[in-house]
Amino acid sequence: MKKYKDLDCVLLVDDDISTNFIHRRIVENAEIKVDVKEITSAKEALDYLTYSGKYEDNIHAPKAGIIFLDINMPGMNGWDFIDEYKQLDEKHKARIIVVMLTTSLNPDDEQHAANVAEIATYLQKPLNKEAFANIADKFFKIIEE
């Protein structure tokens, strides 16, 4: 099982519980040593990253290395999350890779994502083991095999 430097946790941000469940299983089966945190709202994801709200006592929780972010969510959507994420103090977003993971077929969404520096890549759902492993290999250094 591989271990990567600064990849302690994968944050799955999707309002669909079954999608989060499937993506959790994919990440867990990818032979990469990492915790997985499922969150169903963009606001809650921001709270997790900033140790606020219900996460204020979680300062020892694993820091997210990759965020798989859905675009279409009720309330605060993925684009709203990115707008708020940009405003975070660097200590809360340092070394985090944000991946838009969506069912959107709108070419404007992909183009928009390509023009946002905070978004490392844009993928169509569902996530698969190969895509997850490729992202880990591309953005993180292996420290254990």
Rank of each mutant, 00 (worst) to 15 (best):
71 I>Q: 08
30 A>Q: 04
75 G>E: 04
40 T>R: 00
143 I>R: 13
72 N>Y: 07
7 L>R: 01
136 A>H: 06
69 L>K: 08
106 N>I: 13
99 V>A: 10
139 F>T: 11
35 D>H: 10
124 Q>I: 13
2 K>Q: 11
113 A>F: 02
92 H>G: 11
70 D>R: 06
49 L>T: 06
124 Q>S: 15
16 D>C: 12
144 E>I: 13
94 A>D: 15
52 S>L: 04
54 K>V: 12
32 I>C: 03
9 C>S: 07
111 Q>W: 07
95 R>V: 01
49 L>Y: 05
64 A>W: 08
68 F>E: 00
35 D>C: 03
24 R>Q: 14
101 L>M: 03
144 E>K: 15
112 H>L: 09
143 I>N: 13
52 S>H: 03
51 Y>F: 15
76 M>Q: 10
63 K>S: 12
71 I>Y: 06
27 V>F: 04
51 Y>A: 10
92 H>F: 15
140 F>L: 14
18 S>Y: 10
118 E>A: 07
81 F>V: 08
19 T>F: 05
95 R>Y: 09
75 G>N: 05
82 I>L: 14
30 A>L: 06
23 H>D: 07
108 D>W: 10
133 A>I: 14
56 E>W: 02
69 L>W: 09
135 I>D: 07
41 S>W: 03
142 I>L: 15
4 Y>A: 08
36 V>G: 05
1 M>C: 05
9 C>F: 00
15 D>L: 09
80 D>N: 13
36 V>I: 13
133 A>M: 14
112 H>E: 04
90 E>G: 03
136 A>Y: 03
74 P>A: 10
5 K>Q: 14
114 A>I: 01
10 V>G: 03
99 V>F: 02
21 F>A: 09
95 R>M: 05
83 D>K: 15
136 A>R: 04
72 N>G: 05
82 I>Q: 02
117 A>D: 11
66 I>R: 10
120 A>L: 07
45 A>N: 09
102 T>Q: 02
105 L>C: 06
31 E>W: 00
134 N>T: 15
40 T>G: 00
133 A>G: 09
33 K>Q: 13
120 A>M: 08
105 L>P: 00
30 A>K: 03
38 E>I: 02
133 A>T: 14
138 K>R: 15
136 A>F: 06
110 E>S: 13
62 P>H: 06
34 V>F: 00
96 I>R: 08
105 L>A: 10
37 K>A: 04
109 D>C: 09
18 S>L: 13
71 I>F: 08
116 V>F: 00
77 N>H: 04
123 L>N: 02
23 H>C: 04
19 T>R: 01
54 K>I: 13
11 L>T: 01
123 L>T: 01
1 M>T: 12
102 T>L: 02
3 K>D: 04
37 K>C: 02
103 T>E: 11
133 A>D: 08
134 N>L: 15
9 C>D: 03
